[in-house]
Design a protein around this nucleic acid. Structure first.
Lengths: 254, 254
DNA sequence: CGAGACTTTGACCGTAGTCAATTTATGTGG
DNA sequence: CCACATAAATTGACTACGGTCAAAGTCTCG
């Protein structure tokens, strides 16, 4: 039951941002990530920093993230950037109305693998209604998170924003088995953090320093540990829940 | 082609926040507001400042605003408040997942009338698919606006935020015929403005003063006039569009 | 080992927040 | 139509959170 900081590089399934067993699959109650990967025909891969779009070979426009991190963003004419949301393994990405005139585009933040949601449904035994329903709920949660993010950038202080976001990421990653002992990999640069939270990169840096010095978080080598999440949640007005409330995910086998 | 400020109190259909002919109806291509009002059985009314919820007598959970202004909001445990969006005549309000534990609730800002969307569909000659499609598009635009709002509070300065919001409101109100000569009624207190834009009420006041003194806007008696919207749009990084892009609304008869 | 990306730090500035008092509507009852 | 109560808008004085600029330090990776 430690708060011992450690490196998660060798976490569940390996490299940074790559989910452990399951991931989206936890959400979808599918048994193993290898099973998803067996759909290699329909898995699309992107390098870090790529704009996510799919060719006409994909009839559908809904995708599930198999591994890696992404984000939804807009860049203003003068270069300012706002990140709307982070896309984690298991999240549903709806490219239907995306990337129109740059008002909203999807970017990969790490190496990223996505799979056509329709393929998942079709591959499911039965009518796939369970999977379809899970997808709908995942999409609904994604939308709910927009409101939390709005509260963050609209009404919280810098310290609160950072903690609030870290707490959300914790909960979401935990739901897909990517958290160990309150620690998880955080493959984000401080610039990305700044653009998500509506702060300058310098101020993000200073805020992180303060949180570190006050021993509220440990952040090192791309991994974070949140010490005393209950207290941090109260401090940052974070309400957990609405992430995997009704998780289908069984605890994962080693 | 005037910038002459004037009072819109006697605008289209009368009192503050009440739409002129059409309103949502413009969106829905229905002929006249009186027609909607004839559904008085299914029209629900709220006084200013009320939480919007509907009794079990309404089977559906989607409503269209007939007249008045509302907003979607969250109040933090310590009293801070964030307004997520404004609800104008013609907008679709989806109460499906609303007001759960106060994470997201709908409030009326003026006297408000809403009508069950299902009733509108049923009342339409034919299969009502046109109306249903219009409702879907309205809902999609509503979601798009969340992103604009996020950019506002995350990346714009106070002056930009105010102008950006005013420009959006202009476009939305214009689409339902509630704008005359770049002027429209704005039934919001500065406190509401502040809570929407993530600023303090005092700073909103000072920002408005500056905008007035620099002759960029006229704001008096609850009505605003935007002078040179093109220039203001450029200044505030506002991109019009996505409001009534494909408007069904014919210009309204006097 | 060097180039480039990322992080960190210092110095200084400015936007926006807080506190508090005053003025200006708005509204209500007499 | 006036007196009073209340909400809303203003203004001033002061504070502080967060931004900008610039330089130095670290880390990666070919």
């Amino acid at each position: 039951m430690g708060t011992r900081p450690f490196d998660l590089t060798a976490s569940p399934a390996g490299a940074a941002g790559v989910p452990g067993p399951l991931a989206s699959l936890a959400l979808l109650q599918v048994a193993d990530i290898t099973r998803i990967r067996s759909f290699w025909r329909s898995v699309e891969r992107f390098p870090p920093g790529a704009m996510i779009h799919v060719g006409p070979k994909s009839p559908r426009k809904q995708f599930v993230i198999v591994s890696g991190w992404g984000c939804e963003t807009r860049i203003l004419p003068d270069g300012r950037r706002q990140i709307f949301s982070f896309l984690l393994p298991g999240d549903v990405v709806d490219l239907t109305r995306g990337s129109q005139a740059g008002r909203r585009s999807f970017l990969s933040l790490t190496r990223l693998e996505i799979v056509d949601a329709g393929v998942l449904i079709a591959a499911e035994p039965g009518d796939g209604e369970d999977v379809a329903e899970a997808l709908r709920q995942a999409a609904a949660r994604t939308e709910d998170r927009l409101f939390d993010h709005m509260v963050r950038i609209g009404r919280l202080t810098a310290k609160e924003r950072v903690l609030h976001l870290l707490l959300e990421l914790h909960d979401r990653l935990q739901a897909v088995g990517m958290v160990r002992e309150d620690s998880f990999r955080l493959p984000l640069t401080q610039e990305v953090f700044a653009d998500a939270l509506g702060l300058s990169i310098v101020h993000i840096n200073r805020t992180l320093q303060q949180l570190r010095r006050s021993a509220r978080i440990t952040l090192k080598g791309g991994s974070v540990t949140l010490h005393d999440r209950a207290k941090l949640s109260a401090y940052a007005c974070y309400e957990s829940g609405n992430h995997q409330k009704r998780s289908f995910a069984p605890s994962l086998p080693a």
